[in-house]
């Protein structure tokens, strides 16, 4: 019976793995539909709580799937859900990477690399803006973004963990101060 549930987890999560274009955000909606509406593994409220947990813990947002697997079938469910969510897309990336790395040094490969790099750069800045909109709760939170960027320019050797910790403490103090 347990195996049936594990199989079901795979059937739901594996296609989502390949559908996760542009990251985990694109599969929240279908994941909610399957696990809450159809299978009723978790309630809508539980789904939101699990979503919040996935957001505040380290790691990608698709850890939400891991949590649902855990909720439904314990540790085995968590492991199966994680594998189902990561293996299909990872295999695809690896396959494309094989072709990519094999042709290193050819002129078309260099052109691809030089052509794609500025696009990767543009996407980075776009990510700053998109994520910044979410974090922009107040002046302090917004100011942290360029401040951390500038400080990291000056002290590139300093471990990024200190910046994360410092920023967390600052915002905690702001919260305590009641702004």
């Amino acid at each position: 019976m347990n195996f049936d549930i594990l199989l079901k987890i795979i059937i739901i999560m594996a296609p989502l793995s390949l559908a996760a274009l542009g990251g985990a955000t694109s599969i929240y909606a279908p994941m909610q539909h399957h696990t809450v509406d159809v299978e009723q593994w978790v309630t809508a409220r539980e789904f939101l709580d699990l979503f919040a947990i996935a957001r505040v813990t380290p790691g990608p947002g698709s850890m939400l799937g891991t949590l649902i697997g855990w909720k439904v079938a314990g540790l085995a469910g968590a492991i199966v859900a994680s594998l189902a969510l990561y293996l299909p897309s990872s295999a695809l990336v690896f396959g494309v990477g094989q072709v990519w790395h094999k042709h290193r040094g050819k002129r078309w490969h260099t052109a691809l690399e030089n052509g794609l790099a500025p696009i990767g750069c543009g996407l980075l800045f776009a990510g700053v803006l998109t994520l910044g909109r979410i974090a922009a709760e107040g002046v302090v939170q917004i100011a942290i973004i360029p401040a951390v960027a500038a400080l990291m320019m000056f002290w590139p050797k300093l471990h990024p963990f200190f910046f994360l910790l410092g920023a967390g403490l600052i915002c905690y103090s702001v919260y305590l101060a009641g702004f």
Partner: peptide
């Protein structure tokens, strides 16, 4: 509130890398 600050710092890292 603290987690938002941590996220903001992470975005700062992204900006610096850009």
């Amino acid at each position: 509130a603290a987690m938002v600050g941590v996220a903001a710092a992470a975005i700062g890292m992204l900006l610096r890398m850009g």
